[in-house]
């Protein structure tokens, strides 16, 4: 009887083809293993870098503003992606619940992607514009005040902690490697942060929220959440309108003949 230590699994005889050609030659075995594990990845991933097989770009989809990017970094830090997806699937039940299904080109400036894999809470890809800013403020402060029965934790520290302009600029500098921002935009970031932040603070004040300033983390997060999926939604609407116009013209041309 043979045991693993004696290096002889039962059968066939130790001079099999596989043993002579591969098991005796560890370097060749390693090379062939490397080839075997490389093929699938190469076939599936490499074509995505071509124009025809890769994600189709959408002209209306533009990079996040400095404040939105700061909000996105907070979203990443808090692990929102652990419970919330950002990918509406093309099913009737999903488009009824969330809105337009998600297109590949909408994620062009998503570094990292935040599609998520589990909906412990609802999908957020079409969240932008769905609720007023104050809803998000109240929701992050106490999720059950806006969504009774919710199991989401509260995030009160977002109402106290502040974003750091230099830190946002460091992020923008890294992302400029991939063409998200120009140097001029990085230099203008402090003004852009203040301007967009004040707009949100102004809307919060109208809703009787007085203690929030433009550099509070909650403001950046609201900016990001309100941006989610809006570029794509607009692009899809424009495209549908264009198609309908073209169809209308074709019908008109047909009846004129």
């Amino acid at each position: 009887m043979s045991h693993p230590d004696n290096n002889s699994p039962q059968s066939p005889a130790p001079d099999s083809w596989h043993r002579r050609t591969l098991e005796h030659k560890s370097a060749l075995f390693a090379v062939l293993t490397t080839v075997a594990i490389s093929v699938g990845g190469l076939v599936e991933i490499v074509p995505l870098f071509t124009v025809s097989a890769g994600p189709q770009a959408i002209a209306e989809v533009t990079p996040y503003t400095p404040l939105e990017q700061a909000g996105r970094d907070i979203y990443s830090r808090e692990g929102c992606v652990q419970c919330h997806s950002q990918m509406v699937r093309p099913f009737r039940a999903e488009t009824l619940r969330y809105g337009e299904w998600s297109r590949a080109g909408e994620y062009t400036f998503d570094r990292p992607f935040l599609l998520g894999s589990r909906r412990i809470g609802p999908d957020l890809h079409r969240l932008g514009g769905k609720y007023p800013d104050v809803w998000h403020y109240e929701h992050m402060k106490d999720p059950r005040s806006t969504s009774p029965g919710s199991i989401m934790p509260a995030y009160p520290w977002l109402l106290e902690d502040r974003i750091d302009t230099a830190d946002v600029q460091a992020s923008m500098t890294a992302l400029s490697t991939f063409g998200h921002y120009t140097q001029a935009e990085i230099d203008a970031a402090p003004a852009a942060l203040a301007k967009q932040g004040e707009e949100i603070v102004g809307r919060l004040r109208q809703s009787k929220v007085e203690n929030i300033e433009a550099d509070h983390e909650i403001v950046a997060l609201i900016a990001y959440l309100q941006r989610l999926g809006t570029d794509g939604k607009k692009a899809i609407k424009d495209q549908v309108a264009q198609t309908e116009r073209a169809q209308g013209e074709a019908v008109a041309a047909g009846s004129a003949q």
Binding site: I45, L48, F49, P55, Y107, R111, P112, F113, S171, L175
Partner: peptide
Amino acid sequence: AMPATLTRSYPVFSGMTDALVQWW
């Protein structure tokens, strides 16, 4: 990835390509 700070970086791939590389 491209580091922004000592504790934060942004991946070379974006969007769906990043998603595919990640799930690969």
